[in-house]
Design a binder for these strands. Structure first.
Lengths: 191, 191
DNA sequence: CACAAAAATCTAGCGCTGCTAGAATAATGT
DNA sequence: ACATTATTCTAGCAGCGCTAGATTTTTGTG
């Protein structure tokens, strides 16, 4: 009976996603330190060991949230870039990046701050991550070494701004001017 | 008897520093997740409750390591800036910043990544932190709004580079060119 | 020096964590 | 209808941050 196996696998995949969604919701509402195996098991209405049937450990669950978040961000960067004229591509992508970080702080943390097993600049780098990086590069132009370098650099700057803002280490107040200045600097990039 | 009290206070201060140093060493050698009250108490050869006579909780111990690290970094930024010609001030400070982050990753984490009660852009901002920020501003020139904004921005960029490098999220390979590019961008800053 | 008061320190334990072995239950194929 | 297999749960381990209360050490006084 093939359909029985298929149904089981489908239900398993559904529960897999359920765990990821529950972990993400819990993290966004109460912070990652509140995402414990017991609370998460409670939320998905299974016992703790079921979680371990889907993920090796809690870190793997966080990584799954990270990948999901990266895919979402890639999509939002793409939409923002395509909606803007080419001359405003960098600004559109930067704004969308910071908006995502502010709107989904816990997901953002899983993506770029918490320890992770996700491979970033590597042969095994997951497709959504490549896509997100590609969107930043595209804001500068075709995918070449120079634009990739600019993309890495502005990513670093945006990430720094995002986390220092989030933790209150730089003030929210002048954020708009700060972003304007960043974009102006990158617009004047020497060849 | 005044001397007895004085001696007690001196010994207490010594032990206070001993705890900070032990926590920092443990964090640098085994990571912050290994800095537990039990291991730390073991290392300083006291029982756990003694730690709580000096610090409210583990977070306060991390914050103490953070402040110590910030003071050290401020000193190293100052030394680097003063040793370089004014035209190379920004490069000197950037290089020293990234060198500190690479040399003391656990301290750096306590300073700028882990949750903290340390006030950054605030009336209660501790002196060493003001000093460190002041060093970055000085690399750009006198302390005015524009140079402060540039300092905040390049701090964000450096921090982003530091943490993304540390976690393997951007490759070590092109780091030198990346830094050159960053400095070039800031050198071309519009008025 | 002897001894009560005060200060310093430790032992032991609470409720939590991530994780897992083995028991109990449910679904499956004959 | 029943044995087999797959699934899920109960119960527990070792370690976590933190603290109440017992114990030891130090202090100041007669």
């Amino acid at each position: 009976m093939v359909t029985a196996t298929e149904r089981r696998e489908r239900q398993r995949a559904e529960r897999h996603q359920l765990i990821i969604t529950a972990a993400r919701e819990l993290a966004e509402s109460e912070g990652w330190e509140a995402v414990t195996t017991r609370k998460l098991a409670d939320k998905v209405e299974y016992s703790q060991p079921v979680l371990y049937g889907h993920f090796a450990n809690m870190e793997a669950i966080r990584d799954a949230v990270a990948i999901e978040g990266i895919a979402e961000m890639a999509e939002q960067l793409r939409a923002a870039r395509e909606a803007a004229p080419a001359s405003e591509g960098v600004r559109a992508v930067c704004t969308a990046y910071l908006a995502f970080a502010a709107a989904h702080p816990a997901a953002y943390q899983a993506m770029f701050t918490l320890p992770t097993k996700v491979k970033f600049a590597h042969a095994e780098t997951p497709a959504p991550l490549r896509a997100a990086f590609g969107e930043i590069v595209s804001a500068f132009g075709p995918f070449d070494d120079r634009n990739a370098a600019l993309a890495e650099l502005i990513w670093g700057s945006l990430h720094g701004m995002a986390v220092l803002l989030r933790s209150g280490r730089i003030p929210e107040a002048a954020q708009e001017q700060r972003l304007d200045l960043l974009i102006a600097l990158f617009a004047n990039a020497p060849a």
